[in-house]
Amino acid sequence: MENNIENKEMTAQQSLGIITEMMNNSRKSILQDSGKHFILWGVLLIVVSIVNYELWHITGNPAWNCLWFAMPAIGFPVVRILERKNSDVPQSYLNRQIGAIWLAYCIFALTISIIAMLAVPMPITLVIVIAFGFAECISGILLKNWAIIISGFILGVGGAVAAAMLFSAEQLLIFTVGGIILVATGLIVKSQYK
């Protein structure tokens, strides 16, 4: 059917065709648009992890880990600007759930980080990378995409093993890989729903 609908009468078959086509097209537009969020957070994660790694590596001071708090401080305002400026794409149940999963992950990671820094020292990279892989995996399940599910699993399990084997600044490079996986997820989502 051409994407040019007038207010004509139609048969039951045509009605069903319109309903199916409109729902599918709308779903594709919404999910394709959600790809930009994965790309944005992925790029931010790559940049912050590399800058953090370099500063910690050069100075030998782990206090540079405070830079992680710059991620939500930069990321959330940028998301709001992007949503306000460029997009008339609506929210659906699916992209709202994906957003909620990542927001929950972000709150979880920030809270654990603060507790680890101020009160109870713990292997923070290990904890956060497992949760990261899990969030990625769940996103893949919701998007019904095996590549994202498997990359989430590899990130969570591989990241946990790497976190146990690597020390100090080198651990931060796990998050660089995580950022690359997020960008790849965004590109997969964009191409899957083209």
């Binding site: 009468e9 309903i19 709202r96």
Partner: peptide, 25 residues
């Protein structure tokens, strides 16, 4: 009616939609 049904099919799957989005779809 084709157009009204198309609009309702779009709106049934989203929280709300802007005029420009419905027009594009």
């Amino acid at each position: 009616s084709e157009l009204r049904l198309a609009v309702m099919s779009i709106l049934a799957g989203v929280d709300s939609a802007e005029f420009s989005y419905i027009k594009k779809q």
